[in-house]
Design a protein around this nucleic acid. Sequence first.
DNA 1: GTCTATAGAACGATAGAC
DNA 2: GTCTATCGTTCTATAGAC
Lengths: 201, 201
Amino acid sequence: MTGVTSRKRGRPPGTESSDTRDRILTAAREEFSERGYEKTSVRGIAKAAGVDSALVHHYFGTKEQVFEAAVEVAFSPALKMRDVVLEGPIEGAGERMTRFVFGLWENPVTRKPLLAIIRSAVNNEAAAAVFRRLVATQLMRRIADELDTPDAELRAELAAAQLVGVAMMRYVIRIEPVASADVELIIARVAPVVQGHLTNP
Amino acid sequence: MTGVTSRKRGRPPGTESSDTRDRILTAAREEFSERGYEKTSVRGIAKAAGVDSALVHHYFGTKEQVFEAAVEVAFSPALKMRDVVLEGPIEGAGERMTRFVFGLWENPVTRKPLLAIIRSAVNNEAAAAVFRRLVATQLMRRIADELDTPDAELRAELAAAQLVGVAMMRYVIRIEPVASADVELIIARVAPVVQGHLTNP
DNA sequence: GTCTATAGAACGATAGAC
DNA sequence: GTCTATCGTTCTATAGAC
């Protein structure tokens, strides 16, 4: 017997194992973010994680369930964004929102699930649903609730569209010069546009 | 002998056949635009065109060459855009550019190759190269040449990014309410933003 | 010009041994 | 918990008959 307390013996159900699960998730994020849903294979994830492909199915089930588990981490920072944007005067909401989004994209850790979602949502309906849930229902609608303008939801989405578009050009397709431009220069030009979408007449 | 003039006999080389080639191209555009590069199969294109898959290879070679032939039609209207945007006073360039782009997207015929390019460019490097050639080198750079502002190229690309972002939300991912909003309402909000990117201080 | 047939490879998923 | 083995499917691409 090990020197633990007097609870039930053995591992509690549902916690399963060591770090293998996390290694698979990390590998899955890497693969999905680089290749998108269709081009990523369960076998490729398994090889990158140094395990057998059957083990991936053992932990997560189908390929779609692996994807959902891999991108789930993108939701907590995204939900934080709502608070960040709404704390402080409305005149600064555009800049706070722009800075927050570029902060996520510039950080290699948070960038991966975002890339995975955007690369996959374009060709896969399940991933598109994840994208919609992330951008629209969870985020923009709540921000729109705080605007008392007509077309508030549409405005919030057009603001988001500017950010999504820059992300596409800079991080996904990598078109120059926007792909290599200093991020502060981009923020300086984009933040007023986002602000304008939210609050201009 | 047919009643033609006295040139060489038979069909000139390179023109090959009737309308089969066009039927394949139309089917290819349909498939690539709906599924993206990876999920589209040569067999699926062949079936949609009512021919054998080997015939597709016969006409175009590899799958990648089929793709290039299918999206080639997107280039002539895009090149026309440069002229449309630059004819007339610079104060109206934003609206002309916005109207032109939404005109392409709202027309089901021109929408298909655009969808094909954007759905494919996100996961396929060859398609990404097509996208870059279309958006950046052919279009935005030339428009930037006409602006005598600092960061002209970056400005032109941020303007394009707003349009790409709206296209993603409205036509690719289909997020509400922007997916169903009246196009004139969207143009009214987006055109000033595009104009601002191009000419604001 | 259009097809049949097939080579050769990769895929998702499962059953079951250890 | 981890792996071997394998089933059934689908894919690109080519060779070659008609």
